[in-house]
Amino acid sequence: MPDIVFESVTFSYNDKVLDDLSLEINRGEFVAIVGANGSGKTTFARHINALLQPQLGMVLTVGLDTRDPDNLFTIRSHAGMVFQNPNTQMVASVVADDVAFGPENLNVQPPALQQRVKQALDTVAMSSHAEDDPAELSGGQRQRVSIAGILAMQPDILVLDEPGAMLDVRGRRGIRRIISELNQTGMTIVLITHFMEEAALAGRVIVLDQGKVALDGPPAEVFSEANVLRQLGLDLPFSSLLAEALSAQGFAIPESISLDDLKELICSWFSMQ
């Protein structure tokens, strides 16, 4: 059974946001979800841990139907969610208390509670700030505390909705590293992002358009669809843009080339024979 199953899911506010959407995500996958504003990314994410329920169709998270109220508690202990703005996710005035909030609600008792908090803060490299006030941390540090708060609940699935949007380069880099490390431990990652360089780190990229899947595949494959991505108002990663500009200059460039390979190719043009 895949970790996440969307079966013909439709959801509307005034307009249709998810439109007969079907897809599956397996345990341990790292999936990046990209799409223009209004393509349904956030609504999709909120269906995973039953913050929203499908109006038509069905969502199964770790095999459990999100429409069944009896499943909510189990689903949310398996699938944790990190939002864009770290400031809206802080509940306590001490970092360690903030991280403890989730597991406490799962009725985790001391000393297991403290162990979980410590381990979660270690994972996001924030142990040295355990006793600090979240208000005194940088945005990137606060976002790492938000992630720790989810990790302390020991979920199998981590859903992140543009976690780097409010952060600087260093903050984003830190979050990316943590996401990759968590994925290597077998956690399923669903990362919603506007940054194509970030999406390129995933094993699979899903492009949403008007609540439907427009593209779904490995990054190199998805990013080779330059025209589709442009039509959807999305950026291409730098390597694709450069490959395109060099092709326009008359250079022969293979399709869906990675940045490393592109660099090697450029070097070969200048190597002394």
Partner: peptide, 29 residues
């Protein structure tokens, strides 16, 4: 991206003798 692509094209268009490549280029990097 355009400035970079233009600069590469311009450099490539120069006769190879005039390319002042500093040292031998290792293509695995």
């Amino acid at each position: 991206v355009d400035q970079l692509a233009d600069a590469i094209a311009e450099l490539r268009a120069q006769p190879s003798g005039s390319q002042r490549v500093g040292r031998s280029v290792n293509t695995r990097m």
